Simulated scan of single mutants.
Amino acid sequence: MEIWKESQLKQLTFAREIETAYPILLQFAQNIGFNFCAVSLTSNNRNADFKILQINNYPKEWNQLYEKESYRKVDPVVTHCNRSMLPIVWTEELFSPTPLLWDAQQEHGLRHGWSQSFHHEASGLCSILSLARKNGPLSPLELYEHFGYMFYATSHLSDLFARSLPKLPKKPEHPHLSPRELEVLKLSALGKTAYEIARILCLSERTVNYHVQNVIIKLNVCNKISAVIAPSRCGLLDAPNP
Rank of each mutant, 00 (worst) to 15 (best):
K224I: 04
R180N: 07
D75L: 09
H156V: 07
P231T: 03
V221R: 03
D159F: 11
C234T: 12
G109H: 00
H108K: 15
L203P: 02
W4F: 13
P175A: 05
T13P: 08
L138D: 05
L185G: 01
V184I: 05
C37Q: 06
D159W: 11
Q54G: 09
K171P: 05
L143I: 12
N135S: 12
N214Q: 15
S40A: 14
T20E: 13
S188L: 13
H80M: 03
S178T: 13
T91C: 09
F118N: 12
R46Y: 07
A132G: 09
E173D: 12
A29S: 12
I128E: 09
F34L: 01
P172S: 01
T154D: 06
V89E: 11
S178Q: 07
L160T: 01
Q30V: 04
E6H: 10
E142C: 10
T154G: 09
V228E: 01
R111I: 08
T79H: 10
V184W: 01
K224P: 00
R180Q: 12
L141Q: 15
F50A: 09
N35S: 11
L131K: 00
L86F: 10
C37A: 15
T13W: 14
K218Q: 03
T154A: 15
E93R: 15
H80T: 09
P175D: 02
N45G: 09
E181R: 00
A132T: 10
N47D: 15
V208E: 04
T98P: 08
K224L: 05
F151E: 13
I200F: 10
S130I: 13
L177G: 02
T98W: 06
H211E: 07
A29W: 06
S130P: 06
L125V: 03
L143C: 11
N56I: 05
H112N: 11
I24W: 05
R133V: 05
V228P: 01
P99V: 10
F161E: 14
K224C: 03
A227C: 08
E67A: 15
M1S: 14
F36H: 10
P59E: 05
L182N: 04
V77F: 07
Q105H: 14
F34A: 02
E183D: 10
Q27Y: 11
S84M: 09
I200S: 11
N223P: 02
W4L: 15
E107I: 13
E67G: 13
N209P: 02
E67H: 14
P23S: 06
N135P: 07
I128S: 03
F95E: 02
A227S: 11
R163L: 11
I225K: 13
E61R: 13
Y66L: 02
E69P: 06
N56C: 10
F50T: 07
L187K: 08
T98G: 07
G109P: 00
A29P: 06
W102L: 07
M1D: 12
Q64T: 11
L65P: 04
S155Y: 08
V184F: 00
C222S: 14
I216F: 00
F95H: 05
P59Y: 06
Q11M: 14
L125R: 04
L219G: 01
K60P: 02
P23F: 07
E17S: 15
L182Y: 10
E61W: 02
D238M: 11
M1K: 11
E181M: 03
L138H: 08
K134S: 13
L177F: 00
H120F: 08
Y152D: 07
H174G: 04
K73I: 12
I217N: 14
C81M: 09
L160F: 04
C37H: 05
